[in-house]
Design a protein around this nucleic acid. Structure first.
Lengths: 218, 218
DNA sequence: CCTACCGATCGGTAGG
DNA sequence: CCTACCGATCGGTAGG
């Protein structure tokens, strides 16, 4: 009846592996280092995960399952097409901002094993991207979204930008003028502006201010 | 008495190291592997570069110097502001398309050593970004460029997108609908459209010097 | 640019 | 989940 070790050894291994694989890369992070971070010996780690590659797979599986579950939730919560697109982007950025290791790890894996990641992306992310591109196409039919926009390519560019900003933001943000105040935030703010202007057509009537957006409906 | 190998051993080491560091990462590519690719023994490589870290530094230095020299050239060749921005983006994409290893290597290094890369970026890329942001600000004064655009952040987002598309494009491109026809090209095409629409004001009214653009409204 | 060699660390196994 | 141990490979040096 007594519960197993509350934080769960297996779960802690996954958490530390995610952190260390993201920080130092798969080749740069030894299973010895992961075991030490958890507070166990190396052979004990290999009892839970039969090999370093199996640990890598489990880490990735956990990350992509989280994406698969979290992202569509935000999308389903919105009603209007414009809201759906806005909250999809917010959810995407929030997913990586919650834990920047996710972005770093995804980028590293895409570079290390492009073929394996292509399959994982297709299996886990295809449904989510489909939801977003369908919403975009509806917007194109009503004329609110640029007609010459390529829906699939647009979504993947936004993913590339969001992942890249979180993963490499600490470097690129140092190029911003100003100073040391929240510079990754500044990049994310511009990212949102880029997304909005590259997606929606300019408002037809420049004079009518206020709530605007004629006939926003389902 | 015969001349040294024409391609220059040192140069060949740098080329193979660039390729292998990009492909497998710095930790994943041993100096033994680099030496084998060049066709020499490991200690011979260490005669030209005193350590693996020295080799890494030389590889990066060469890459960033190339950026520093090539990119501003395209910029200087254009006259009008709009041309300058257009050719800056073309040159940026072409730089990475010429050799995708450049993008992969830059991303890996930003993840592995953010602090060192921040300094290298500042030293090598600051002048180029300054040229672009100055041109953008000129466009904002004439009203052709969105007034609420953040010049430095916009440039870094475009760099993030271009580098990310070349480095991780083979993975994300597989998510595109269509099929197997030039999918990274399709992403680059959308990248250009995103850049254009997020930069320039729609020009429905040819009357220049329009009203100052308001910030934004939901 | 080579041969020969170094200690340290790698991923993984035996056996309990 | 542990101790003890394995062969292979790592970055680097000695010395020519």
């Amino acid at each position: 009846m007594n519960a197993p070790a509350p934080p769960d050894v297996r779960t802690r291994i996954l958490a530390e592996a995610t952190r260390l694989f993201a920080q130092r890369g798969f080749e740069g992070a030894s299973i010895q280092a992961v075991a030490s971070a958890v507070g166990i010996r190396k052979p004990s780690l290999l009892y839970w995960f039969p090999s370093k590659d199996a640990l890598r797979d489990a880490v990735l599986e956990q990350l992509l399952s989280h994406w698969k579950d979290d992202l569509p939730r935000a999308l389903a919560a919105s009603s209007s097409g414009k809201d759906r697109l806005h909250s999809s982007l917010s959810a995407l950025m929030e997913f990586f901002r919650q834990d920047p290791c996710r972005a770093t790890l995804l980028v590293r894996e895409m570079l290390d094993r492009p073929d394996a990641m292509r399959d994982l992306f297709r299996a886990h992310l295809q449904p989510w991207t489909r939801l977003v591109t369908d919403t975009i196409r509806m917007g194109q039919e009503t004329g609110r979204v640029h007609a010459d926009l390529d829906p699939e390519a647009w979504v993947m560019q936004l993913v590339t930008m969001a992942v890249g900003t979180i993963a490499t933001g600490p470097v690129t943000a140092a190029m911003l003028a100003g100073a040391e105040d929240a510079t990754v935030e500044r990049q994310l703010h511009e990212l949102v502006r880029i997304a909005r202007t590259s997606l929606f057509n300019a408002r037809p009537a420049p004079d009518s201010r206020g709530h605007a957006h004629p006939g926003e409906e389902a």
